[in-house]
Every structure is written in C-alpha cells, then in structure tokens.
C-alpha cells in the first residue's frame, strides 16, 4: 500500500471521528433543552448498559467463557474513579471534566487488572464452575467496598462530581463498539473466537489459549470499569448495593437476550433490558413479575437470542452492486 492512501485512510478516520463528536455534542445540547430529564436519564442508562453488554459479550459470547461477575468490575471502576475525584481529589484537576475523564480511565485500568486476576481461574475451570468463581470474586469486591469506611461503607459515596453526561457516555460507548469490533476482526480476535469453538484445535494452531482467556477477561473488565466510572459520575452517588449480584445477572441477560457473540445484539439487549422495566412502570409493582415473564417469553421465541450469532444488518438483504 502506498503512503498517500494510508494517509488518506487516516484522514478519513479522523474526519469521521470529528463529525461524530460534533454530532454527539449537538445532540447532547438538544437533549438538555428539549427532552424531559427522565427520558434523558433512560437514554444515558442505555448507553452505560450498552458498554457493559458489549464488554461482557467478549467473555461470554466470543471467548466462550462464563462470567457472572461483571458488576464487580463495574464496582472497581466506579469506586476507583470516584475515590480519585471525591475522597482524595489530587488537587482541583480531578474535579474538572477532563480530570473526571482521566479518573474514569484510571478506573478502567484498575478494573482490567482485577479482570486479569479473576481471569486466572478460567484457565482451570469451565462453564458453571467458572460462573460461580466469578460470582464469588465480584461479591468479594463488593464486600470489600462495604467495609472500607473511607469510601462510605454501606452508606456509599455522596457528592461525586457529576461530569458524565449523554455526550461522555455515548462517546465511550462508541469507543467500546469500535474497540471490540476491530478486535474481533483482527488476528487476536480470531484467536479468541477460535478458542470458543475448539480449544484443542486452537492450541494446535499455535494459539496460546490461556493467554487469550486472560486477555479477554482483562479487556472486558476494562470497559466494565469505565461503565462503572461513567455511572458513578452520572449519578453523583454510589453504594455497594448498586453493584450486587442482580446487576451481574442483568448484564448476562442483555448478552444472552441480544444473541451471544453479536455486537449489535449486545446493544439491543442492553436497550431492551434497560427500557423494558421503565416502560412497565404503569403496571407498578406488577412489573417485577411482568419483566421476567417478557424475558422468558423472548427466550422461548428466540432461544439463541434476538439476533443469534449474527449482526443486525445481516438480516437485511444486501443491495446488489
């Protein structure tokens, strides 16, 4: 490939990115003026859920492992970033929007390290056993935060600077999408998909299976941590209960409902699982029964998830060129 065309490719990417950011910012402004804050909140929660689902999809959908501890990594990201911005603010910097972004990134990195540790058992355990271990780890993380007085213990943390917004959440969500999309279309991503299909064959083809299992856990946890940071700095408040078992289960439901291994499926699952309980509010407390019923019904109708293994656009016939 010649140098000019490479530069052109880079220029094109930069232009698309710039336009995307501008549009996102514009929509953010419009939402602030035009939309009922309640709806804005639901839309933002969809974005956070999408990041969680996209990231868990790497472990549960692509690498063929089973994690039931995503809330734990989210908690790490939330607590680490909130501690930086609230409890031990390193000067004014971490109170500024940029500082909050940096804190959230650091939260993601720490979550990735936690993901690395939790990924290690995946080298020995499979299926249900692995699920139980990841669940145990995430509960341990939660109980740790519950017992650290500096981060509020059971009361949680208040007064976290609210600097995440529609704009930031969807910027990170887009980044997560591009990250996982490109990862899966690279040699490393193929290695991860190969180990899901057949570990023995993948290893025989020169893929260091143990390495890629742990890498999947780390990369996935990084984005779970970022989702946690965004969550903390959107709510302005976090407590250990925000990251309990039920949240992990919800993220698994998003991935399974959307279709394991499908990125658009993960996003779709995230939107359904976030919006559905909200739209059922008219049924008041009955929604606690109706929501699971709807989920069960959807899984009965489409046992492989709404999209199965496929991406959403694969359902539409391609235009003839």
């Amino acid at each position: 490939m010649s140098a000019p065309s490479q530069n052109a490719g880079f220029l094109k990417q930069a232009t698309i990115t710039a336009v995307f950011i501008a549009v996102l910012w514009g929509v953010d402004q419009l939402l602030q003026i035009g939309l009922n804050p309640y709806y804005v909140r639901v839309v933002v929660n969809c974005g956070i859920a999408a990041i969680l689902a996209l990231s868990l999809n790497l472990i549960n959908g692509c690498a063929g492992q089973f994690s039931l501890g995503h809330a734990g990594f989210m908690a790490v990201g939330a607590y680490v970033s909130a501690t930086l911005t609230t409890v031990y603010p390193a000067g004014e910097f971490f109170q500024s929007p940029l500082g909050v972004g940096v804190a959230i990134t650091i939260g993601g990195i720490v979550a990735a390290l936690a993901g690395y540790l939790v990924g290690l058992p995946s080298l020995r355990l499979k299926g249900d056993y692995l699920a139980i271990v990841t669940l145990g780890f995430s509960e341990m993380i939660r109980v740790c935060f519950l017992n650290i007085p500096a981060v509020g213990g059971a009361r949680g943390m208040n007064g976290i600077p609210v600097h995440s917004s529609f704009f930031w959440v969807y910027l990170w969500a887009a980044l997560a999408w591009v990250f996982f999309w490109r990862l899966l279309r690279s040699g490393r991503g193929r290695a991860i998909l190969a180990l899901r299909d057949d570990e023995t064959a993948a290893e025989a083809m020169g893929v260091e299976v143990s390495h890629f299992k742990v890498v999947s856990f780390s990369l996935s946890s990084a984005f779970a941590g970022i989702a946690g940071g965004l969550f903390a700095h959107y709510q302005g408040f976090i407590d250990p209960q925000s990251f309990d078992f039920s949240r992990s289960v919800l993220v698994v439901i998003m991935v399974v409902l959307g279709g394991m291994g499908s990125l658009s499926g993960a996003v779709l699952g995230a939107v359904v699982v976030t919006v559905l309980p909200e739209s059922l509010r008219v049924f008041e407390s009955y929604r606690l029964i109706i929501f699971p019923l709807v989920l069960i019904l959807m899984m009965l109708l489409r046992p492989k998830g709404i999209l199965g293994h496929r991406e959403i656009w694969e359902f539409f016939p391609r235009r003839a060129k």
Binding site: L193, A194, R196, D197, D198, T200, A201, A204
Partner: peptide
C-alpha cells in the same frame, strides 16, 4: 484431527 475439529462458527 481424526474427529474433525474445525472452528465451526468461523
């Protein structure tokens, strides 16, 4: 492999 082991979803 004798018992075929292709990556079936790829």
């Amino acid at each position: 492999f004798q018992n075929i082991r292709v990556f079936s979803h790829l």
